[in-house]
């Protein structure tokens, strides 16, 4: 067993904590996708909560990776997912409005 420096140990455990913090966002995004009544609210639940969860997971893994190249690649992945998710959320919501899909209201 290689003796681990104290600094790396702290980074590793804080990274684990960040990943653990990001998991409920994914699960709540899925629960919102199942439970919400409308396409607009489902888009809202999914494209926001999942990206926050992915941000937590990426930052936790970047703290644990210990190299700048892996950190840059992880941040690039998160940036690409953000761009794709926001663009497709906007496109789907606009197209649903043009197709006369009524938003859900509480009667």
């Amino acid at each position: 067993m290689v003796p681990v420096k104290k600094n790396m140990d702290i980074l590793y455990h804080s990274g684990t904590l960040l990943i653990l913090l990001g998991l409920p966002f994914f699960l709540s995004g899925t629960v919102g996708l199942i439970r919400f009544p409308d396409i607009y609210t489902r888009l809202h639940a999914l494209t926001k909560a999942d990206n926050v969860g992915l941000g937590f997971v990426v930052s936790g893994l970047a703290l644990q990776s210990g190299s700048w190249a892996v950190t840059a690649k992880l941040l690039l992945i998160w940036l690409l997912v953000l761009i794709a998710s926001s663009a497709s959320c906007h496109l789907i919501a606009r197209s649903a409005m043009q197709k006369n899909i009524q938003p859900w209201t509480r009667q």
Binding site: L33, L46, L54, S85
Partner: peptide, 17 residues
């Protein structure tokens, strides 16, 4: 289609982990 996008995001997270 939105669910397919959820699969993309969750799949990326699973692959990273």
């Amino acid at each position: 289609m939105v669910t397919a996008q959820l699969f993309g995001t969750c799949g990326v997270a699973i692959l990273l982990l």
